[in-house]
Amino acid sequence: MIQITNLYKSFGKNVILNNIHLSFERGKIYGIVGENGAGKTTLFKCIAGIETYKGEITSIYGILKEKLGFLQTESFFFSKITGREYLQLLCVARKIQENDFDAKNIFDLPLDHYATTYSTGMKKKLALTAILLQKNEFYILDEPFNGVDIQSNMIITEILHELKRLNKTVLISSHIFSTLSDTCDEIIVLKNGEITKIITKENFSTLEKEMKEFSMIDKISKLKLC
């Protein structure tokens, strides 16, 4: 279990996250939604320990980062590193001996090509494969479905179900509501750095309706398209 208590983060006077209280249980998948700039990525970075913060994050895993697989929205790749070397790097960093990357290359990536030559979706799949090979207990997936083809999207959805079955904890952000409703047990709504709602599975359809009504009609009319 991971417990976040009274988390606060600001950059100078700009408050990004305020009064965040959350708890994540084993064997559950949590979604997080919010407009661009709501603070989702900063929250992920705070949980990962990449950003400093005020407040407390505790977990049953001791040093949380050592059991955490963090898929970033846009993973950074060195300009001359091959896919295979990237996987090796992430395994070595966690002291995991993995000799047969080809057998576990479920997305059929060209592992001996430079990762920077991969398409957006391929990069995402490479980064995801790497954190799965690390055998983590807790996964943060920031926009895992972005840029990924339909078949791979289905594979990722199945992977999420498998992780749940294996009693892992997963926290996902996505701007595609259906991907969250298909996989999550709860959805957290983040607005201007604060949690406004935590929605359980039976109320997902109400949340989707609310989000559509809020965002669509008025905003498009402002463009005065002709």
């Binding site: 060195f78 300009s79 001359k80 590193i81 070397e85 090796q88 070595v92 001996d112």
Partner: peptide, 24 residues
């Protein structure tokens, strides 16, 4: 960059500084 062939290095076991640095 995309047409670059992959230069093999003996530094695979412990990436990344020498794999990437050597290729550049």
């Amino acid at each position: 960059k995309k047409n670059n062939f992959t230069i093999k290095t003996p530094f695979y076991k412990y990436p990344f500084e020498f794999c990437t640095g050597f290729r550049k």
